[in-house]
């Protein structure tokens, strides 16, 4: 596990000058991942925020080989790249060791890309799939996705006279991926650099497919001031809305158990997309959201190894 000082000696493989919004967590996730991966990688990217902000012709922020083809198929595209690599290695045409990383947003992963993802995982391509989960279709203006949390306000499930935002809970994608039985699956956030970079290292060393679901707060869609991106992600973990855990060869391990589990309210109240939680009738929404977080947390506790030391 590298320290920040060690990481700082490496090349930053995503340049500035990309067009992501001020305060976007997504590009800091990519920077952290590439610091670990190094330059001998091929990055695939689904259509979405990351692709559109980093590759506006004639400019690219990528200092590693990069391919985007479409929205729902990054797992398939990168499996083709990885297969060509295997074929050329086998033939002795290529000798260097390379890694393959696919990035998709929650739309491209939870929803439209889940089939291609599932197929690639089942086939066993050695690749790391990273979902930068900002919990809605942010690139196109905050439409709801399978990752959007309960009762969040989005542009396609807006809060109105007869609506309290998204009626359903978010899909537990990490569990769905873990069910594929691949060597390494983990959940982390943009704001836990040590946890994230450690997991990237494990994932890239896994002998087979690996998957990271990385919570990626969005200033525009979640409606909070741009300097709070790190704090908001940390609160998602401290409230157990987004636990840091990993599934290594089938074994669940919680990487952090908050010393004091904060009420979900502390995360909710910082975001404009939940502001109707604080209007008449909102207590009920909050209670329902809290109950689901508790249920999922208890389940995770029940199946997981506990970390050696707890956070303060």
């Amino acid at each position: 596990m590298a320290t920040l000082k060690e990481l700082a000696k490496r090349d930053d493989l995503l340049s500035g000058g990309h067009r992501a919004c001020a305060g976007c967590a997504m590009t800091s996730i990519v920077r952290q991942i590439l610091l670990v991966a190094g330059k001998d990688v091929v990055v695939g990217c689904a259509t979405g925020c990351l692709e559109v902000t980093t590759t506006i012709f004639p400019y690219s922020a990528w200092r590693v080989p990069f391919i985007h083809t479409a929205f729902e198929n990054v797992a398939a595209t990168i499996s083709g790249v990885e297969t060509a690599y295997r074929s050329l290695r086998k033939q002795g045409v290529l000798n260097k060791e390379m890694r393959f990383i696919a990035f998709g947003g929650d739309g491209g992963t939870y929803d439209i890309g889940i089939q291609a993802l599932s197929g690639a995982l089942e086939r066993g391509h050695r690749m790391l799939y990273v979902c930068y989960d900002n919990e809605a279709y942010m690139n196109t203006g905050v439409q709801r996705s399978g990752a959007t949390p309960f009762s969040a306000n989005t542009t396609t499930c807006p809060v109105g006279e007869c609506s309290t935002g998204k009626p359903q809970f978010n899909k537990d994608l990490t569990a769905i991926v873990a069910a594929h039985g691949i060597p390494y699956v983990a959940q982390t956030t943009s704001a836990h650099w040590r946890d994230l970079t450690t997991k990237v290292e494990k994932a890239l060393n896994a002998d087979g497919p690996s998957f990271l679901n990385v919570l990626s707060p969005c200033v525009v869609g979640w409606e909070y001031p741009s300097d709070q991106t790190v704090q908001i992600a940390k609160l998602a973990v401290d409230t157990c809305f987004w636990p840091l855990y990993e599934v290594e060869n089938g074994k669940y391990r919680l990487n952090l158990i908050p010393a004091e589990k904060k009420p979900l309210d502390e995360w909710i109240k910082r975001q404009g997309r939940f502001k109707h939680f604080y209007k008449p009738g909102g207590e009920e929404l909050l209670a329902k959201a809290q109950a689901e977080v508790d249920r999922r947390w208890e389940r995770l506790l029940a199946v997981s190894e506990k970390p050696q030391k707890q956070s303060k």
Binding site: L4, K5, L7, A8, K9, D12, L14, S15, G16, G17, H18, A20, C21, A22, G23, C24, A25, M26, T27, S28, R31, Q32, S190, A191, W193, V219, P225, S226, D227, T229, V230
Partner: peptide, 28 residues
Amino acid sequence: IYCPDSAIMLKDGKMVGIDLQHCKGCGI
């Protein structure tokens, strides 16, 4: 590590300034 815009300038692993050509002023 948390700058989304690669705008914290380092030299020999130490901070030497902020790249105002690219910093979008998010305040993180």
